[in-house]
Design a protein around this nucleic acid. Structure first.
Ligand SMILES: NC(=O)c1ccc[n+]([C@@H]2O[C@H](COP(=O)([O-])OP(=O)(O)OC[C@H]3O[C@@H](n4cnc5c(N)ncnc54)[C@H](O)[C@@H]3O)[C@@H](O)[C@H]2O)c1
Ligand SMILES: NC(=O)c1ccc[n+]([C@@H]2O[C@H](COP(=O)([O-])OP(=O)(O)OC[C@H]3O[C@@H](n4cnc5c(N)ncnc54)[C@H](O)[C@@H]3O)[C@@H](O)[C@H]2O)c1
Lengths: 218, 218
DNA sequence: ATCACGCTGTGAATCATTTCACAATTAGAC
DNA sequence: GTCTAATTGTGAAATGATTCACAGCGTGAT
């Protein structure tokens, strides 16, 4: 293993694909596979072999020619590159349809990123334990975030509330937000925001599905 | 209004932002605003003014200097650019946690893109009407897709099923898929696939939230 | 031992996207 | 009317991402 070349921070896109490679590697490790080539990884990841190799340059693990990458070694190199050693607790704000789906989905799935506190304003949803996660009133947000040292939050509140809740999160010490509300958050520099905009995604699909004749156009 | 310059197809990214601009325009139209500048749109969209103007080049509507864009006119130019006139029916496959959230969310929200049929393999979930949408057994997929002329589908089945279901969708005539399963689909050329990978998104946020000291590093 | 094959790592080239910068234009002031 | 200040549309430059292409090397064959 060679030391990280300490170039610039890896791009957003590269980090995303690295998480994908790790997921695939875990799957094929379960099948007992010991080595994998960039081409095989690329096929499963929907990328190209060159892209895989380029992405892997940042993690400080090199494969061997003809043999490829050791699955176990690459997983651990990716993990040490991607994960914070003690794990990163996550907060969820907004225990609605999406919020509950996410709570159910992430329970036990990524131990390093488990949702440790959920917040809402609806009295019916607070003071409970949902999928092993305690739910609190929004007024307890600052206290809990600080007490648990939470720096990552999922924002799943109505669009009209998103901006103000985001501000509270940042004030409480959160530096990364996964935002499901269809609005652009205006956060101070240094805060990383990733938007999941399902409506936009569906509209893109619809646009690129227009005017495609099933048969060659006549 | 000038005719579309018939350059290349607009990029994926541009189309996404155009849908965003339209959404914002609809919001500000409700507030009674009649004109808007590229700078104001950019602020709400989380983009730059130059980007907004560049994106709008493809839609065939020009603003006027000093006055900006007519809100109503730009909405209709965007709509005629983005939407298929009669609307595009959408199919949903997988009526689980995510699938049900989406059914609830999209009901009445975008009449041009309403979910017209849902499919599952669980007998408890078929033969019903959920949020105004009929649910069917997977075996009826081909028939319904063809009967309703559906070309856009949302795929919300377990990862292990996604590839085979995608193939069936494509065989039935679907040309665009919004995929929630965390796997890369291998579809024939000409099929547009948009992936929503929440786990990847969360891991990206977590990565870029690592090792950021709340106070300046000492 | 030696060799040939095929895979890796990466500089360079290509391709795509964003930003810059400014001529053209026009609303509004007077 | 004429002038001013501000905004648009877009060519060109800058930046960023992907792909190409190949030197170098280790593996497994013989
Ligand atoms: N459900 C979907 O499929 C879907 C799809 C696309 C986008 N979204 C977006 O995701 C977000 C959540 O959607 P949803 O369907 O889960 O909505 P929802 O109405 O089911 O849930 C929203 C939750 O947020 C809570 N809430 C309201 N204001 C709050 C505040 N200030 N602080 C904390 N909690 C607050 C509500 O009590 C509710 O429990 C919305 O912005 C929506 O636009 C959802
Ligand atoms: N729920 C989340 O928050 C979340 C987050 C990230 C990713 N995902 C992904 O989204 C997909 C759906 O997740 P979910 O939480 O809704 O799962 P889920 O288990 O709640 O629902 C899956 C549904 O698909 C149905 N199904 C199974 N095989 C099928 C087939 N061959 N054809 C049609 N239907 C079939 C099941 O009966 C079930 O109703 C999964 O791929 C999951 O990895 C979900």
């Amino acid at each position: 293993m060679r030391a990280n070349k300490s170039k610039r921070a890896p791009s957003d896109r590269t980090v995303g694909r690295l998480t994908l490679y790790r997921r695939i590697l875990n799957e094929i490790a379960d099948d007992g596979v010991k080595h994998v080539h960039s081409h095989a990884l690329a096929l499963r990841a929907g990328a190209t072999a060159a892209q895989v190799r380029r992405d892997l340059m940042v993690v400080g693990y090199e494969g061997t020619p003809r043999r490829g990458y050791g699955v176990a070694q690459l997983i651990s190199a990716l993990t040490s590159f991607l994960d914070e050693p003690g794990g990163q607790p996550v907060a969820l704000v907004g225990i609605g349809n999406i919020g509950r789906s996410l709570l159910a989905y992430f329970v036990g799935r990524r131990p390093n990123l488990s949702i440790k506190a959920a917040f809402d304003v609806d009295p019916q949803k607070i003071g409970r334990v949902i999928n092993g996660c305690r739910s609190f009133d929004l007024s307890e947000l600052d206290r809990e975030i600080e007490a648990q040292g939470i720096r990552v939050a999922i924002l799943a509140v109505p669009a009209s509330e998103a901006e103000q809740v985001a501000r509270r999160l940042v004030d409480a010490g959160v530096v990364g937000i996964l935002n499901f509300a269809p609005v652009a958050l205006h956060t101070p520099p240094g805060i990383y925001v990733e938007n999941v905009d399902v409506t936009m995604s569906l509209e893109k699909v619809a646009f690129f599905s227009r005017r495609k004749k099933a048969r060659t156009a006549g």
